[in-house]
Amino acid sequence: MSVSPGRSAGGTALADRSPSPEAAPPLSISGLRKSFPGRTVLAGLDLRITAGRLVAVLGANGSGKSTALRCVVGLERPDGGSIRLHGEEIVGLSGRELARRRSRAAMIFQKIHLVQRRGVLDNVCAGALGRLPLRRSLTPALFPRELREEAMECLRRVGLADRAGDVVGRLSGGQQQRVAIARALCQRADIVLADEPVAALDPAAAAQVLELLSELAREQGLAVAAVLHQPELARRYADRVVGLARGRLAFDTSPGHLSDRDLDDLYATGEAAP
């Protein structure tokens, strides 16, 4: 089950650019390292996620799950290693080129992070900000009509077309998380990274959100990675389960093969490290 740290792969990532990016996996992380003052969070993580699959990411607190996702979307700057989106390296890049390559990955947050005082449709449209010129995006009133139609389509996909005109603050937590997923769709992301997307939701809403994510993976070919706290949810909804411990990949298996032993080891190592 153990996977080699793959540091050599990370070192040559820039040189050996894949000739046809379409053949490359949507997200490929190798040898990723990240430390915060006083502790190492990622110690050479290797992880690939594939199109059309929902990958559940398990691990104890502090195992580096969230940090890994945050490095991919640019909320943390990795110390080293390689992150490739569709074969294109993004570690070490900056500015427009980085923003362009990264726009294919969207993040879903535990705390949802929609703009509470804006309407549902405006929040979904905001997913497209990265590709809109300033003169069409300074206020929601300037959003092009095609964008509104596309955003409506995204809302329909998550089953909330009838709430398009509501203010976000009026929706339940589960509905808000689905609006956040619609925002990711409106971003035209084909990689969706969800950081504990259902940790703050009741079981019914959690099931709805995970079902939606796995449908989007299967039907629209998105590559989805979801950090989950409950192994049962992983067994039920994921196509693949990976475990992180101490900033490295601990196992990578199918839900059917996920043994209690794997899980005990995973959470035990987590507890050993304070």
């Binding site: 990264r102 993040m107 005082r117 809109l132 206020t139 925002r183």
Partner: peptide, 27 residues
């Protein structure tokens, strides 16, 4: 700062982040 971070990750620039995440929250 959550909504600000969320919009940054989907590629919004500084002015767009202010217009769509910060200002609506402080009106």
């Amino acid at each position: 700062l959550g909504p600000r971070d969320a919009l940054r990750t989907n590629g919004a620039n500084g002015v767009q982040v202010v217009a769509h995440a910060i200002l609506p929250a402080v009106v």
